[in-house]
């Protein structure tokens, strides 16, 4: 039984189709990352799952419970979803503790239980002692933590996070993200994380769903999605991608700039191949028959470097490990070490 099932969802906003025949399912405890450009409908999908938007077609189910289907629409306040919107949206008139306990039903739980839960949430999110502070006294990262604590306090079956780390600086971002993911996993919470940061998606999730124009165009594990993108455009959304012109020949070989083929086999298809920058190896020693190019630029990132190489007028970006021994202007040999992902033009 899946924790979340979205089937053939169609959502119209102001007459425009924002989500189009979208389907997605998550097993309990799975974390999905939703990647895609702005305007592709990620937030709309989250809001539809939360019940804040009413779909025009399709089904949404939480486990056995059907929450959305044609005339059935369970309102948001009955769905027990944890929702952490982009701006955090803490209640400005309540202190942190009251923010966190806001969703806990006081007719079901006693004051002590509520206090206890609040304490747990504060501890879980690393916000011990902040209970009496007011939201405006907190930094952005702290507000995000509280927003998460508030969402988790109601012990939701599903947590929806809409770009919660976008306002933070890099270092804080990584740290907070790690903490949040760890927390979610420890609670075995099913979660959807919307992000436009490719690396964030790859590192955090069990499932990556790539969205484009209201549809999920590819989904799968991070490894699958990264190494087997279904199109050159999709490839770019999960990482840097080199898209090179290529031709496929009848004998099964593929001809492209890093692998020129001198066979007489007839052309079967022309198109492109997608290579990841780290799939090219550079060698100082040039040999006969090696493909050579000249280094134009080196961007050093510490743990690795991006090298721009000029081959016969074409520029390629190659990623090499940190310590290296190349200089700008040097001629190097290039070797493609990786799968040949051919995409035909047809």
């Amino acid at each position: 039984m899946n924790a979340l099932e979205v089937s053939h969802l169609k959502v119209l906003l102001s007459g425009k189709v924002v989500l189009d025949d979208l389907s997605l399912s998550l097993a309990p405890g799975q974390i999905a990352a939703l990647l895609g450009p702005s305007g592709c409908g990620k937030t709309t999908l989250l809001r539809s799952i939360a019940g804040l938007i009413r779909p025009s077609e399709g089904q949404i189910r939480f486990g056995k419970q059907l929450v959305s289907f044609s005339s059935v629409h369970l309102p948001p306040h009955k769905r027990k979803i944890g929702y952490v919107p982009q701006e955090g949206a803490l209640f400005p008139h309540l202190n942190i503790a009251d923010n966190i306990s806001f969703g806990i039903d006081s007719s079901v739980f006693t004051k002590d239980q509520i206090r206890q839960t609040t304490k747990e949430m504060l501890a879980l999110t690393g916000m011990d002692g902040f209970g009496k502070r007011m939201p405006h006294q907190l930094s952005g990262g702290q507000q995000t933590r509280v927003a998460l604590a508030r969402a988790l306090a109601i012990k939701p079956s599903i947590v929806l996070l809409d770009e919660p780390f976008s306002a933070l600086d890099a270092e804080l971002r990584t740290e907070l993200r790690t903490d949040v993911i760890t927390l979610l996993r420890s609670q075995n919470t099913t979660a959807i994380l919307v992000t436009h940061d490719r690396e964030e998606g790859l590192v955090s999730a069990d499932v990556i769903a790539l969205m484009r124009e209201g549809k999920i165009v590819q989904s799968g594990t991070p490894e699958d999605v990264y190494s087997a993108p279904i199109s050159p455009t999709i490839a770019s959304s999960t990482g840097d991608a080199l898209v090179l012109q290529a031709s496929q020949l009848s004998d099964g070989t593929t001809d492209y700039i890093l692998n020129p083929i001198k066979s007489s086999a007839p052309l079967v298809a022309s198109g492109h191949i997608v290579i990841r920058p780290e799939e090219i190896k550079l060698n100082k020693s040039l040999t006969d028959g090696s493909i050579n190019g000249q280094i134009i630029k080196i961007d050093y990132y510490g743990h690795d470097a991006m090298v721009a190489i000029d081959i016969a007028g074409q520029h390629l970006q190659v990623r090499i490990p940190g310590p290296f021994d190349f200089n700008v202007g040097q001629s190097v040999a290039l070797e493609h070490v990786g799968p040949v992902r051919f995409f035909s033009n047809n």
């Binding site: 939360a50 019940g51 309102p75 948001p76 769905r79 949206a89 806001f102 969703g103 927003a147 969402a151």
Partner: peptide, 11 residues
Amino acid sequence: DGVKDVAATLG
């Protein structure tokens, strides 16, 4: 803005 939505999801 977001506060009303969040309140709804919190029950």
